[in-house]
Design a protein around this nucleic acid. Structure first.
Lengths: 135, 135
DNA sequence: CTTGACTCTGGACTTAAGTCCAGAGTTTAG
DNA sequence: CTAAACTCTGGACTTAAGTCCAGAGTCAAG
């Protein structure tokens, strides 16, 4: 049988605060945990993975709803739907990368053009801030 | 003299809801607007630009606090500080792009490997969801 | 057994960023 | 002038994602 751990250890191992683990259970992002006779929650490998998955997703800017959607794919029987959902996610990510790349290029150009000293009127960054072009 | 417009027109032109414009004023992201004798707010070119800047920033995932920081650079006298702040922003953006690029590549690989039909056990997307590697 | 660490619950509180509202006054097109 | 459209204020409400708390019970080391 697999070892199970308490909520404190789960929290430490997965990098998610205890309160947040309970919160995720409350909102249904995690299944109700198994309990000891005392009422203490017990967790196995599966929920550790799930929690780490959630943490990674959040770090990437997905909302909990989006993460839940991703996770629920795992229980889908319909492989085509899974693939479609993954494609939508991909399109999202690509759009965000494109936007950020534009910003990055803009910032790079400004920084490169700014002498880093002298009069404010000569600073291209300040000038750009006061009149940007449309996105 | 420049034409000035009311809050409704400002909202339409800058793509920000009226209530949100007032909200921005309440929280200090916009300066208190000029007023007519009636109390109606009046806006000029400058605040239209500012609002559009804010909208763009939000679209890129910056918080209002970050946007305010960016905007306040415009009133900074210290060109070196402006340059430094812009560099920090750039580093941020680059980090986010790198993260998203990893996700994109992962998703692409999964989608490419998924046949889009057949048994769930053969779907690499579902398999990846149940056991991801660490970020 | 005792002590310190851990866990339980339900609910209140927080932050960010709005969004909505009522009731009153203002502007403008016809 | 009248009606429709616009704007004002202050405050209440919303959503997302936690975060904190009190008071009570439980577990583990010595």
């Amino acid at each position: 049988m697999t070892t199970t751990i308490g909520i404190g250890q789960l929290a430490r191992r997965s990098g998610v605060p205890i309160d947040t683990v309970r919160h995720y259970e409350r909102i249904g992002l995690l299944k109700p945990a198994a309990r000891l006779a005392s009422g203490y929650r017990r967790y196995g490998e599966a929920e550790q993975k799930r929690l780490r998955f959630i943490r990674r997703g959040k770090a990437l800017g997905f909302t909990l709803d989006e993460i839940q959607a991703l996770l629920s794919l795992g229980s889908s029987r319909d492989v085509a739907r899974v693939r479609g959902a993954a494609s939508e996610r991909l399109a999202d990510v690509e759009r965000r990368i494109a936007e950020l790349t534009r910003v990055r290029d803009g910032l790079r150009a400004l920084i490169a053009a700014c002498p880093g000293h002298g009069r404010a009127e000569d600073c291209p960054i300040l000038n750009a801030l006061s009149q940007e072009s449309e996105p």
